[in-house]
Amino acid sequence: MSASATAPSSAFEAHAIRITDLDKWYGDFHVLKHINLTVAKGERIVVCGPSGSGKSTLIRCVNRLEMHQKGTIVVNGTELTDNLKNIDQVRSNVGMVFQHFNLFPHLTVLDNCTLAPIWVRKQPKAQAEQLAMQYLERVRIADQAHKYPGQLSGGQQQRVAIARALCMTPSIMLFDEPTSALDPEMVKEVLDTMIMLAREGMTMLCVTHEMGFARAVADRVIFMDQGEIVEENTPDAFFDAPKNERSRQFLSQILDR
């Protein structure tokens, strides 16, 4: 792990995400403790850990849905501060997929996908729609383009959410427990889509407990507990022979289910 603590943010940035000495509090509660994490371009990282361990908070800091109090986060060479311009720049290059999809219920699937390209990227409508159809095709849901989110199943909605994020042609994708609100039979279609993305070389930071997914695509697994990164390992080593006692405990719990 390369925590280059003092490297200034420069035009040339080899890392997609560089988090240095990050601390975050909710009031008195120390939710993230001294986090150091570097994600190289094209790297796929799975973050797991018990609930309340701060893993969602961590990835939500990367597009500043959460504010951090100490340390630095540099995304594609842009440091996240109170500077709104920087935040918008980062956000339009970082796609996010949420646990509860968060599709816009009053817009059709197609409009969900074209909204940000049209209003943020200033793409002409026809071009945005063409691009959207292309991505909807890739997540195999183009035939539902003119339906409203409420008419789709959970798995379909999550695939639309992935397509919506992709329409901004992000260089990094954040996944916040993308399959944990889904019925079991729909998990696979979403994971397959994510695996496809990973194979195409997308930089990914995924909060998930899906071991199969982690083994198939992750370069590294990060295990968090009580706001700290406890273990960092290759997926096979992590799942087969965890180094840390807390990792072992956690794994035995999720494997028991």
Binding site: N63, L65, D88, R91, S92, V94, G95, M96, F98, N102, L103, F104, L115, A116, W119, V120, R164, A165, M168
Partner: peptide, 8 residues
């Protein structure tokens, strides 16, 4: 959050 995450 979804609107923010898209950069709107």
């Amino acid at each position: 959050e979804a609107a923010e995450a898209l950069g709107l």
